[in-house]
Simulated scan of single mutants.
Amino acid sequence: MNPEIIRALIEQGLPGARADVRGDDGVHFEATVVAEAFRGKLPLARHRMVYATLGERMGGEIHALALKTMTPDEAGASA
């Protein structure tokens, strides 16, 4: 598994989302995901939304995924 495939899966599964995914060893990754769909949702719900885009790959091909999830407004405030 590589970061680009994970990015594409997340962005396809969450329309309008932007994902930045990093990982050097092929099984441990970090992702920052910005999506309007996160508005009004708690962090756990946001993470579940991202995990849902990856399906069975989580815990298999993707051993670990550290997530930072934000709405576009939150991303703009931290920039």
Results as ranks from 00 to 15, higher is better:
residue 26 G to E: 00
residue 26 G to S: 00
residue 27 V to K: 14
residue 27 V to G: 00
residue 28 H to V: 10
residue 28 H to Y: 03
residue 29 F to K: 01
residue 30 E to R: 05
residue 31 A to R: 00
residue 32 T to R: 15
residue 33 V to G: 06
residue 33 V to S: 11
residue 33 V to Y: 02
residue 33 V to C: 08
residue 33 V to E: 05
residue 34 V to A: 01
residue 35 A to V: 08
residue 35 A to H: 13
residue 35 A to N: 03
residue 35 A to K: 03
residue 36 E to N: 06
residue 36 E to I: 04
residue 36 E to A: 14
residue 36 E to W: 03
residue 37 A to H: 00
residue 37 A to M: 02
residue 37 A to S: 08
residue 37 A to I: 03
residue 37 A to T: 04
residue 37 A to F: 02
residue 38 F to Q: 03
residue 39 R to I: 10
residue 39 R to W: 08
residue 39 R to K: 14
residue 39 R to E: 15
residue 39 R to M: 09
residue 41 K to G: 01
residue 41 K to Q: 15
residue 42 L to M: 08
residue 42 L to H: 06
residue 43 P to H: 05
residue 43 P to L: 04
residue 43 P to E: 00
residue 44 L to H: 08
residue 44 L to S: 09
residue 45 A to N: 11
residue 45 A to I: 10
residue 45 A to H: 13
residue 46 R to L: 09
residue 46 R to H: 05
residue 46 R to A: 01
residue 47 H to C: 12
residue 48 R to Q: 14
residue 48 R to S: 03
residue 48 R to I: 02
residue 49 M to N: 11
residue 49 M to P: 12
residue 49 M to D: 15
residue 49 M to G: 04
residue 50 V to Y: 00
residue 51 Y to V: 11
residue 51 Y to F: 14
residue 51 Y to P: 07
residue 51 Y to L: 14
residue 52 A to P: 07
residue 52 A to H: 04
residue 52 A to T: 09
residue 52 A to N: 11
residue 52 A to M: 02
residue 52 A to Y: 01
residue 53 T to D: 11
residue 53 T to G: 11
residue 53 T to P: 09
residue 53 T to Q: 15
residue 54 L to P: 11
residue 54 L to R: 10
residue 54 L to W: 07
residue 55 G to D: 15
residue 55 G to S: 14
residue 55 G to A: 12
residue 55 G to P: 14
residue 56 E to D: 15
residue 57 R to M: 14
residue 57 R to N: 11
residue 58 M to V: 13
residue 59 G to M: 07
residue 59 G to C: 10
residue 59 G to V: 13
residue 59 G to N: 12
residue 59 G to H: 12
residue 60 G to C: 11
residue 60 G to M: 14
residue 60 G to I: 07
residue 61 E to G: 15
residue 62 I to E: 01
residue 62 I to Y: 07
residue 62 I to G: 08
residue 63 H to F: 06
residue 63 H to P: 04
residue 63 H to C: 03
residue 63 H to R: 09
residue 63 H to Y: 03
residue 64 A to W: 06
residue 64 A to D: 03
residue 64 A to L: 05
residue 65 L to V: 14
residue 65 L to T: 07
residue 66 A to H: 05
residue 66 A to L: 06
residue 66 A to E: 07
residue 67 L to A: 08
residue 67 L to V: 08
residue 67 L to G: 07
residue 67 L to R: 03
residue 68 K to R: 15
residue 68 K to N: 13
residue 68 K to H: 14
residue 69 T to C: 12
residue 70 M to T: 04
residue 71 T to I: 01
residue 71 T to R: 02
